[in-house]
Amino acid sequence: MLELIRRGDGRRLVRAMALPAMSALLLSVAMGTTWAATLSGTATAHLHLVPPIEGSTLYEEGPVAGALTGTVKARLQTGALFTGQFTIRTRSGNILGRGSADPHGSGRYQSFSGSFVATGGTGRYARIHGRANLYGVIDRRTDAVTLQTVGNGKLIY
């Protein structure tokens, strides 16, 4: 299943010097590289469990589509607070990140929401930094996870 919300092609190029209202963070990146880009739109990953389960830790992997296309590997620590480490592999490079989220809802489908922070990358995303909104649902019968990151203009590469 694929859910896609894009602004243009999902990769919005910004000429930093032409936008005086741009944040200082983006400006500093742009001055060094001439161009900076933000990851916008929604990337949705459908992950399945990679056994074995390690107590409260789930290892998951699966395809991602939308603003990013490729695969995701995730290590999720579940509990009173959900945290995770992610590797998103795309043709253009990899994105590494971590996230934390509060659980919501009750019952078989446990949803969670929080934030994703990019911690590093390779290729096109070698300079990625910033954060995005993170949403997800875990099926507690199958341990399948649907994970969604929603760019809010703060994920810059």
Partner: peptide
């Protein structure tokens, strides 16, 4: 210990 998987157990699928 948080390494024990209470939240991902199959318990309490309904409320």
């Amino acid at each position: 210990p948080s390494s024990i998987g209470v939240a991902v157990s199959g318990l309490g699928l309904l409320t």
